[in-house]
């Protein structure tokens, strides 16, 4: 739930990185932490097990600049990816303003990706949030690995699109991040919308800021 504080002149928004275990959610935050100037970010908090698996969440507040005299402060959270921790994973989604699904591109992880995506839809629905209406995008991580599945296959499995029922939105919308591709298009006579996607190699930082900027922008646009 974004909050505009007129006393401190801040806009606070909550972004959650979701996805299967060992997919790179924490790595995304670690990269942001190392690259953002210390005066533009806060302390990174990680509630992790002794083997560095996320137990509850990682948290990193980042200032992305000033708009209309208000500091835009984004609170980045990751959830524990392991199936076992669903109770705590669900808690982190409370009040979320934007979601990044970090998928593991490796062919062997397809099933885990699909399971995590279903879990995301279910947990959002339990709060009364509709994932097709909130700022949401998918990051296909680990693109550098030799066993990475083709984007086409990942899109078909994880981002097949949802029906566009609002007649006002039933028109082609190009994907601003991928030339020649569309976010809203016709398929077998029906209008379909897909979430924007990004390719990344979080360990080297490739695609990390592109993903963050895109979701932050979508969140700010919905505030207007």
């Amino acid at each position: 739930m974004s909050m505009i504080n007129y006393a401190s002149r801040e806009i606070n928004c909550k972004l959650v990185y979701y996805g299967p275990g060992l997919g790179g959610k924490t790595t995304n935050l670690e990269h942001v932490y190392t690259k953002v100037a210390p005066d533009q970010r806060g302390k990174m908090v990680s509630l992790a097990t002794e083997t560095e698996r996320t137990l509850f969440f990682d948290f990193l507040p980042v200032d992305l600049g000033t708009i209309r005299g208000f500091k835009t402060r984004f609170h980045l959270y990751t959830v524990p990816g392991q199936v076992y921790y669903n109770a705590s994973r669900k808690l982190i989604l409370k009040g979320v303003d934007g979601v990044v699904f970090v998928a593991d591109s490796q062919v062997e992880r397809m099933e885990a990706n699909v399971e995590a995506m279903q879990n995301l839809y279910d947990n959002m629905a339990q709060y009364g949030y509709d994932l097709t209406k909130v700022p949401f995008l998918i990051q296909y991580n680990k693109r550098d690995l030799p066993n990475a599945a083709p984007i086409k296959d990942l899109q078909a499995q994880l981002n097949p699109g949802w029906p566009v029922e609002d007649p006002a939105k039933q028109k082609p919308a190009p994907d601003p991040w991928h030339a020649g591709e569309s976010l809203v298009f016709q398929q077998d006579g029906a209008w379909v919308e897909r979430a924007p996607y990004f390719e990344a190699v979080a360990v080297t930082g490739e695609g990390v800021f592109e993903t963050l900027k895109a979701v932050a922008k979508l969140v700010l646009i919905t505030l207007g």
């Binding site: 739930m1 974004s2 909050m3 505009i4 007129y6 006393a7 401190s8 909550k14 509709d130 909130v134």
Partner: peptide
């Protein structure tokens, strides 16, 4: 559909 937005006015603060 989403978590919504709210604001805290200087007077409330």
């Amino acid at each position: 559909t989403g978590a919504g937005t709210w604001s805290i006015a200087e007077d409330d603060h």
